[in-house]
Design a protein around this nucleic acid. Structure first.
Lengths: 320, 320
DNA sequence: GTGAAGATTGCAAGCGCTTGCAGTGCAAGC
DNA sequence: GCTTGCACTGCAAGCGCTTGCAATCTTCAC
């Protein structure tokens, strides 16, 4: 394994100069810089990460706390974060928190010496955990006072979705809510309501699962709503499944839609009316933000929001 | 941040002794060891990971290559690997390969200086990529000559499943196959066949998606099979969904089952007949194995296998 | 009492890279 | 011709930890 010293020798300069030629090229004469670079390439030089980390105090490692990996909603966020990290020469430590605040705390504590900063997806639990940490951290899809964050503007999208349903002529609209304690859930309901003149019929809190979606169907049908909006894809799929089983036609007898889109789920129901969530963007934006904190710039704004897009599919139509 | 030097000073010993007291306690006198330990605790001492890594040449970091995060099948493997890593004081770099061999190669190259070893989930593509690497690597759920691995014995489970179906009286049994190029797919088919007297009716290759599962249903029904075994959960769910839509009763008109179980999918269809895959175990076993290679022990056997368990649910019954 | 094996400990040299500071050479300014 | 200033470069001191080797201290056996 070639070290910087080898490069330096080959280029006929000191290690110091070799180092500078690579990290602070403007401090080095053009000719020298070129010689060092050539030597580096020729020798296949690669930094020794620990050595560099020890000397600079930067590990070029970021940790991403994610509640659980089985929820396909997080996958694109992770992918986006990963890409952004990679592009900036960092790597990502993805760790599963199981939504346990205790574990979150533990993990942060365990990893804080190892990483330069944290991204945290923590849809539930007290936000206070993140409030007085002295490490760079940005919260994803959640807002807590005093903590930098990137959120997805699902409520905004739901307002649009509500308007769409209203326009189709729906007057009695159901919202199949998310899990108890969810930060996003009440905001989504509120968003949907914002787009509507009539009061939303809210069901829930519901676990965000296929089963819950299918179990709620009887109650939903009894409510005489003409349209239903599901908190997330799993719920939505359960709903669809049970409706199919009961022979309820979609969208003829009931319009249904979902507050996030299923892309990448591998379970895509084609042409459902959904909100397209630019989750990758949220992930990468969050990474940019922590990196900003890491090297001392104070990225503004400290609370970002990415817009969602209403995708009108074939599961919504005018009520009969 | 307390360094080892602080601990040493507080305990009244040299840094060398302090270090040894913590990593090679048997080399240090009982009394001293205790003093050092107390001092460390009192000061809240924690190793500086980069410093330790630089000195020892071990980063205590492992990389896990995973094809994609949206496939819930991988989640428990990751969880298991994560747990095992954590327990042994290591951390896990989870990286998504998108099943691109090129990217796999790149990632390995990019991370090899950073991590002590690799775990790779690479269900498709040429195995040769892994064959002549000079880093510790173990393949998960895939076997390639000359490469250490941990596989899940799904074929064995399928043989049991086949026997179960045969016993119920099924004679014409369909297998809804996995994706083209899958290493596991032909082995699963072969496993299923092993449990049966009659020739399996094989469909596929099929993409392992919900859609593919629902799309194949017409063809499946036309085949007059009385039972069907799906390659994986997504396919299985699609199948179930479409059958429900068509009003085909399960298991009365058709027995269906799945070669992996849905636990943790959040989409669990209760009481389906499936194979329970101890994926966590596979993950943790793989970690133990790489760690073995990392510190020079040569863990035996170099090719491990974890057994799956047949779970008889309510989606299989005797044919009419 | 004496020498030697054995048990503890400390010294100091790294691990590979960064960076403050000092030194060099050169062109411009007087 | 002799300062000055500037652009480069090199020296060497770390970053915090590990570890081979030497030094010291015990403990025994003779």
């Amino acid at each position: 394994m070639a070290r910087l010293a080898d490069v330096a020798r080959k280029a006929g300069v000191s290690v110091a100069t070799a180092s500078r030629a690579l990290v602070r090229p403007e401090m080095v004469a053009e000719r020298t810089r070129q010689r060092v670079r050539d030597a580096a390439i020729e020798l296949g030089f690669r930094y020794h990460p620990s050595a560099q980390a020890l000397a600079t105090g930067r590990s070029r490692l970021l940790a991403l706390l994610v509640p659980d990996l089985t929820n396909p909603f997080y996958a694109p966020i992770i992918a986006g974060a990963q890409r952004a990290a990679e592009e900036s020469g960092n790597d990502l430590l993805v760790v599963v928190t199981e939504e346990s605040p205790e574990r979150e705390r533990q993990l942060i504590d365990r990893l804080r010496d190892r990483v330069d900063g944290f991204l945290a997806i923590a849809p539930r639990g007290a936000g206070s955990l993140f409030t007085s940490l002295d490490v760079p951290l940005v919260l994803v899809d959640r807002r807590v006072r005093g903590v930098p964050s990137v959120v997805v503007d699902t409520p905004g999208g739901l307002a649009e979705l509500g308007a769409h349903l209203a326009e189709l002529g729906h007057r009695r609209i159901a919202y199949l809510g998310g899990p108890r304690g969810s930060w996003a859930d009440p905001r989504r309901l509120e968003g949907l309501q914002r787009g509507l003149d009539h009061e939303v019929v809210a069901f829930g809190p519901l676990p965000p699962t296929f089963e819950a979606g299918s179990d709620i169907v009887d109650e939903l049908l009894a409510s005489e709503c003409t349209a239903a909006v599901a908190y997330n894809s799993a719920l939505f799929l359960g709903l669809l499944y049970r409706l199919a089983q009961l022979g309820v036609r979609v969208p003829e007898s009931l319009s249904v839609c979902c507050a996030d889109n299923l892309a990448g789920l591998g379970l895509a129901v084609p042409e459902a009316t959904t909100l397209h969530v630019p989750a990758e963007e949220a992930g990468s934006s969050a990474v940019d933000m922590v990196l900003g904190f890491v090297d001392g710039r104070s990225p503004e704004p400290r609370n970002r929001s990415v817009a969602v897009q209403l995708v009108i599919g074939k599961t919504t139509a005018a009520p009969r």
